[in-house]
Computed example of a mutant assay.
Amino acid sequence: MAVPENRPRPEPGHTEQSTVRVDSWIWSVRLAKTRSQAATACRGGHVRINDERAKPAQHVRVGDEVRVRQGERERIVVVKRLLSKRVGAPVAVECYLDNSPPPPPRVEAPAPAGLRDRGTGRPTKRERRQVDRLRGL
């Protein structure tokens, strides 16, 4: 009768493979909300592996540099661990080394002139003329 080995269990989502699809990995480490969004980003040219455009089915290995453009910001991460399943945020952060530049500071846009506060009612004739003068009408 065979006795089962007492091996340590791998962490959730951890894979023993040497490569994983890039769209799956981006989704697993929470750089994209859904796998289809990750695949769409790859097809649109927003994902690069080691400075080469990546297709969704392209494989990523430990040590690869992955660049993901998200709007105005570009995330630059180095793969430390491969995942095939989505994991929680604390585990996901341990799977890559983030070399991204800090995000630009958020600038509060000034309120546009001529807009009334919500619930203050309809402007009077005098206020409408002032608004028209401000707009140059």
Rank of each mutant, 00 (worst) to 15 (best):
50 N>T: 03
86 R>T: 03
106 R>P: 07
111 A>E: 09
11 E>T: 09
15 T>V: 10
30 R>W: 08
106 R>Q: 12
121 G>C: 00
54 A>P: 03
84 S>W: 10
34 T>M: 10
92 A>F: 08
57 A>H: 15
118 R>Y: 07
85 K>I: 05
55 K>V: 06
43 R>Q: 14
78 V>T: 04
122 R>E: 00
51 D>C: 07
59 H>T: 14
30 R>N: 08
15 T>C: 03
87 V>T: 09
5 E>G: 15
7 R>N: 15
26 I>K: 00
76 I>Y: 01
33 K>R: 14
17 Q>K: 14
104 P>Y: 05
105 P>Q: 06
12 P>E: 10
131 V>T: 07
101 P>K: 13
115 L>E: 05
56 P>F: 12
70 Q>F: 11
107 V>I: 11
14 H>R: 15
41 A>E: 04
108 E>C: 11
17 Q>R: 10
122 R>V: 00
39 A>F: 09
126 R>D: 05
37 Q>V: 14
131 V>M: 04
133 R>P: 00
119 G>H: 00
3 V>Y: 14
37 Q>G: 12
32 A>C: 13
84 S>G: 10
109 A>Y: 09
61 R>I: 02
120 T>S: 02
2 A>D: 08
54 A>R: 01
55 K>Q: 13
33 K>I: 10
55 K>T: 11
23 D>S: 01
88 G>E: 13
34 T>I: 09
98 D>Q: 00
63 G>P: 02
44 G>E: 12
3 V>W: 13
36 S>M: 14
83 L>M: 08
50 N>A: 05
28 S>L: 05
111 A>S: 08
21 R>L: 07
25 W>C: 02
117 D>E: 10
103 P>K: 13
66 V>I: 11
15 T>S: 03
62 V>Q: 00
118 R>A: 06
109 A>T: 10
16 E>S: 11
73 R>M: 11
136 G>F: 02
77 V>F: 01
77 V>W: 00
92 A>S: 04
69 R>L: 09
70 Q>S: 12
127 E>M: 07
15 T>M: 01
111 A>Y: 07
61 R>P: 01
27 W>H: 14
106 R>W: 12
58 Q>P: 07
21 R>S: 07
136 G>N: 03
90 P>I: 04
29 V>T: 02
69 R>D: 08
61 R>F: 08
73 R>D: 11
37 Q>A: 15
69 R>A: 15
1 M>I: 10
83 L>V: 04
107 V>P: 03
65 E>F: 06
32 A>H: 07
83 L>C: 05
9 R>A: 15
5 E>V: 12
